[in-house]
Design a protein around this nucleic acid. Structure first.
Lengths: 360, 360
DNA sequence: GTGACAAATGATATCGGTCCCATCAAAGGA
DNA sequence: TCCTTTGATGGGACCGATATCATTTGTCAC
């Protein structure tokens, strides 16, 4: 192939270093506005530093080019990614979604972005996801659930960013923790039912030996059983049925199984409102009257519990507030470069009494 | 202050260019393993290219140092961030959460990470969030909802990455679209009720003039009313009540208001199963028999609808599959550098007949 | 008028990877 | 034997921002 004829006006062809993107960079803006790149950067990150006239020139160039700054590059240079990592078991649970919402809200004003990963209750997946998250260099890490593999814990300690475990107070916090004790949830539920005078008390949970395990639910059951034992009551009506995660349907089938196995049951605690609501629905179908024949309580205070008939007694934890509080704490923490001492905050529980329980 | 005494063995102090991070970089790994940075990079991204002996040396160094590659830097260099952006109205809706799950699952194997933003049904927020997302240079953008501001649309067109609108087929797709028509949902619901012989037909929706607007729900209502009009039936029992987003409680209050205003109502379509379930619960409290006195149907096929008594007739859309499908499409699209022609896929609807409707 | 100081702006190195091409050794063919 | 090809590895530029420090300009006091 012969060399093409010399061009009339040698265009200052952009060096073909790498495949060029069409997208304008800060350099394009600076050229168009007739200022340095640094000035453009300042206009976008701290406008006060720049004279209004200069600022306007720059903003016009930004608008004309449709420039959107590249935070990837910015993050690398400033060593601040603006990411907060959040690891959840699942998003399809209203309470965990509420955590995410609360967090986002708190982080929005400080211009942090949540980087969400979820594990589907699978601990091996947790480890993989954690690596993915860490590779994005989040400025803090928020975890749900106190169970981590060795490796995961080690990676977290080495990450050198604030770590907050939420929604579940671990016995050995990695660093900060905000939440409540699922064990106490169980004990509180049992205590509540005992105080109401019940003696044939059961519970509905998922079986812990399936493919996935609901550690949080299992903790609740442990507390529940302990409290029953302290009262010298049998725990044989604590039914672990089907596999996690629990659902309305889980509650329905588990309830039927429990009632058939223990016809004299008086009161039932379900690990989750989801199960509890399912149980109430199944009871309707079986013509078992709630609470006259059997009392039921749940955990989580899901909206549906308020609406069913009878309304569901439950244990309330404000997950959205939990997210908000965590977010605020992180924003403060990241704003001051001090490293506060590890803190553990128990936000406590609240029993919400509704019509699904009737004193014996 | 006087100069400290000369050190005995001048440590090769690292140049203090910028505040040094403790975290090991690829350079540390390469030094420890005695290879070049490039070789380390290859071991981690395409191990086949490297001799097993070399590979093992590198992997050992990686493990010893606890090295976690920095994707921020990698993204900048390779111009591939591995992010897919997802914009949702909210995460606290089981169907939208299901979309996120489906997407994640499809993207996981190709090692893309979802970058989620949500708008709380607020269009100004959508625009802000979109800018945040674009600044992260996602390789594709997935949007829910066909309503965008001018500006948002323009930004999307200029973004130069695949854009997929899902869960709602827009009249003017920006590029690709996978979903269903909410207008058709409304018409289908009305048609279904008409075919069952009802003539006094109502609906429950949120009021469109609150602070937030549920455009999707409003589309359903539009289709519903159109179908009624075609059948020469009045639309005066289509109740827009309370503010979006709808909830169980919304359904309960709206149901009561509708029944009080239109005592002769025979059948009701609710914009969402949430409202429909709330309505059924309120009906129980009002001793209105469903379906004997009033038939009810919803939209969305939420799990709870299957469990209540009577089980809820609804219109089903498989949101998880929608997410999965979108994810697969994107993975294919991004793997081949071809730019496929814009496509619009209607995944259709399915009426799920349950006990909450009884022919007249 | 001049020096001191503050405000506005610019020049350049750098963040931590990957791309592109060069280099070198080993293998195979003429 | 020498050349070509292939496979493994390395060198250096570069991605697009910001940190840091230098420079320029303007203001004010003396």
């Amino acid at each position: 192939m012969s060399r093409p004829p010399r061009e009339t006006a040698a265009a200052p062809e952009p060096k073909p270093g790498r495949r060029a993107s069409q997208r304008p960079t800060i350099r394009d803006v600076s050229r168009l506005a007739g200022v340095s790149r640094m000035t453009v950067s300042r206009v976008l990150s701290d406008p006060e530093l720049v004279l209004p006239t200069t600022r306007d020139k720059v903003l016009k160039a930004v608008a004309d080019l449709g420039y959107v700054p590249d935070k990837t590059a910015g993050s690398l240079s400033s060593r601040r990614t603006g990411f907060i990592a959040l690891m959840l078991p699942t998003l399809t649970n209203a309470n965990f979604a509420a955590v995410a919402h609360g967090l986002t809200e708190a982080l929005r004003e400080a211009n942090y972005h949540l980087l969400i990963a979820y594990t589907d209750y699978d601990m091996a997946e947790e480890e993989r996801q954690l690596l993915n998250l860490l590779a994005r260099r989040p400025e803090a890490i928020v975890l749900t659930g106190a169970m981590h593999r060795r490796n995961a814990s080690r990676m977290l300690m080495a990450a050198d960013v604030p770590v907050v475990e939420i929604a579940d107070l671990p016995s050995q916090p990695i660093e900060h923790a905000i939440g409540f004790s699922n064990y106490q949830v169980g004990r509180t539920a049992a205590r509540y039912l005992l105080d109401r005078g019940f003696t044939r008390i059961g519970a509905l949970a998922a079986s812990p030996d399936g493919e996935v395990t609901d550690h949080r639910g299992e903790e609740r059951m442990r507390g529940f059983e302990d409290e029953l034992r302290l009262a010298r009551l049998p725990t044989d009506a604590v039914l672990r049925h089907g596999s996690a995660p629990v659902s309305f349907h889980h509650g329905a089938t588990a309830f039927r199984a429990l009632v058939e196995a223990q016809p004299d049951i008086e009161a039932i605690f379900a690990v989750s409102d989801l199960s509890a609501v399912g149980a109430v629905m199944e009871a309707q179908r079986m013509h078992i009257r709630i609470p006259d024949d059997i009392s039921i309580m749940g955990f989580g205070d899901f909206e549906i519990g308020r609406e069913i008939n009878p309304a569901l007694t439950t244990i309330h934890v404000d997950f959205r507030a939990l997210g908000l509080r965590t977010g605020k704490m992180l924003v403060d923490m990241l704003a001051s470069d001090a490293t506060p001492a590890p803190s553990v905050v128990d936000v406590g529980l609240r029993i919400v009494e509704r019509a699904s329980i009737k004193d014996r």
